[in-house]
């Protein structure tokens, strides 16, 4: 089983992830689009760039009404980013198996803080999704599957690191592989597609001279 998880399934999952994600992005970015025939008032390019970054911050007047989503969203994503790219085992794994170079890993205390942020964030987001009338109405099965899968990957990863137990390591890796296979066909794609979405909309507003 260990050979299968560390060997074939890993390469298969990686291939599905890379081919699936790039295929999706190519379809979005390179497919022909209608040319807008109206005369622009301002630059689509600068509008696209502006919106790419401006949407990291919520509208200040709405903050009191969307505080939970914003705070929990930032906690989860920042925590996950640190876990993914700065947890010591991940840095070592990326260096040895994929990139050939590494970087300084986060100290243990930061790992603990980041994981607490990530767990608290994802739990808050999921509870909000289940209890808020709007989120409940618009959420799909995919949203729940993606949340649960991500949660299990995080949980197994933290346990594996803290307990240094081989079975937990294998379970974590197996769940990561499931996530990689599921990723291109799911809502998880937002990790990449938010970029073209913001660029498209920013360009649209930019050529009309609207600061979005």
């Amino acid at each position: 089983m260990a050979t299968f998880i560390d060997g074939f399934l890993w390469y298969f999952a990686l291939a599905v992830f890379v081919i699936g994600v790039s295929g999706n992005l190519v379809t979005i970015i390179l497919a022909s689009r209608k040319v807008d025939l109206s005369v622009p008032r301002d630059s689509a390019f600068s509008g696209a760039l502006r919106t790419l970054f401006s949407r990291f911050l919520p509208d200040q007047h709405m903050l009191s009404r969307i505080g939970i989503q914003v705070v929990a969203g930032y906690m989860f994503h920042l925590g996950l980013f640190i876990l993914l790219f700065f947890a010591a085992p991940h840095v070592a794994f990326l260096e040895e198996n994929i990139l050939g170079f590494g970087w300084t890993a986060a100290p243990h205390w930061l790992f603990i803080v980041a994981s607490q942020f990530a767990f608290l964030g994802i739990i808050m987001l999921w509870l909000y999704r289940m209890t808020n009338s709007v989120s409940r109405l618009i959420s799909k099965l995919d949203d729940h599957v993606a949340t649960i899968l991500t949660f299990l990957v995080m949980l197994s990863g933290c346990l594996a690191l803290l307990e240094s137990f081989e079975t937990l390591r294998l379970l974590h890796r197996f769940l990561v592989e499931l996530l990689l296979i599921y990723f291109p066909f799911s809502r998880l794609m937002h990790a990449f597609t938010f970029v073209p979405s913001r660029l498209f909309t920013g360009a649209w507003f930019g050529r009309r001279g609207v600061d979005s």
């Binding site: 979005i28 209608k34 919520p58 009404r65 989120s135 618009i138 799909k140 979405s197 498209f200």
Partner: peptide, 24 residues
Amino acid sequence: DPKVKSFFSSCVHCGICAESCLFF
């Protein structure tokens, strides 16, 4: 079109848009 594909695949159903809409 590609825009619509990008829009739908990036929506995480957060519901933030509801608070921007006066009908909601």
